[in-house]
Computed example of a mutant assay.
Amino acid sequence: MDAIVIEQFGDAEVLRPGRVPDPPSRSGWTTVRLHTAALNWHDVLVRRGLYASPLPHLPGADGAGTTPDGEPVVILPALFWGAREAAPAPGWELLGDARHGTYAQFVSVPDECLAPRPAGFSWAEAAALSLVGATAFRALVTRAELAAGESVLILGAGGGLAPGATAIAKAIGALPFVTSSSDEKIAVARTHGAVAGVRYTDEDWIDQARAMSPGGDGYDVVLDSVGTWGESLRALRPGGRLVVLGASQAEQATLAARPFYFGQYSLLGTTMGSPADFRGLFRLVAEGRLGAPTIDSTFALSDAADAHRRLESGRAYGKIVLLIA
């Protein structure tokens, strides 16, 4: 089959078209003929070698395609989550880390990691839904228990997660606000449901963010995918919840203990999404409360390197998708 093969870790140039064997058939797994694969920042980290994937390797977590019976499906890339909903089992993994992913004509996944393609979604939109959608659903609904009427500040409006998180917050009746590096991205975020936004490049962005929150007291929830916990806590109202699901800017955070416990804050870690989160996400879609993901651009599978350059440029808003067949 045709695929994008990484022979060594490095910059986007290491993403090269190649030929590899089709995945083998096995009981309890389904081989999906992929039509699209959506990019995530996680793919960049895999390409750089952060997860020490075995080489040669096929990256990619998100995908949509057809089963051998012709059923159109979307792939849930969180494999082997386990029986406990509170956290994944020790042996869980993300598709495209230890085993070949979706930058290929075919991929094999456990049967529980498939869901029907939502009605009315294009192949690109279907591929773009799963990882970001399930991750944002788990962060906001399962972990933060964000409720209708509450406010949430979503850091980084231009990132791959933020548009999906904004849409999910709006779908459940919450009030999403955003931060971004540019007024243009804030304007785009507002057209997709954000109430308002501030530039995090401004020195007083936290004061601005608190001032625009309902009542000016701070947010019920802050969604932090960048690792700036101290700043995020300052944007919360007393008793608010900080949900952490990434570290794109900082790998470590230092918090002052007394302000934290006197503020009655909650600090919640989360990652990816379980099959139950996946089903919850698709219920929102089926009920007509959540529409298709925002697509920034599409590229041919053979142009995966250019797609990664687009992702790393920081200019994209929404998902970047590879067209396979």
Rank of each mutant, 00 (worst) to 15 (best):
L323D: 01
G164F: 00
L281A: 12
F177A: 04
G173P: 09
E231V: 01
V73Y: 08
S181A: 06
V152W: 01
D277M: 11
E85K: 15
E287H: 02
P24E: 13
T31W: 07
L76M: 13
H308Q: 13
A286F: 07
I4C: 03
H35G: 12
I172G: 07
V321M: 09
P110M: 09
T254C: 06
V188I: 15
V32W: 02
R33K: 15
L322V: 13
Q249A: 15
I4F: 04
S108M: 14
G158L: 08
A194Y: 00
F299P: 04
Y51M: 10
E251D: 12
A147D: 08
L233D: 00
F260P: 03
Y219S: 07
R210G: 05
P238R: 15
G149Q: 04
L284Y: 07
S108F: 11
G193Q: 03
L284C: 11
G230W: 01
L129N: 02
F282T: 01
I295K: 08
M1E: 10
R19A: 10
T201C: 07
L242G: 02
R309W: 08
G70N: 13
H35V: 04
M272Q: 11
R33P: 03
S213L: 05
V109C: 11
A115H: 10
D2H: 14
S225G: 14
Q264G: 09
D303C: 06
A144Y: 04
D204H: 10
S122L: 08
A144Q: 05
F9S: 07
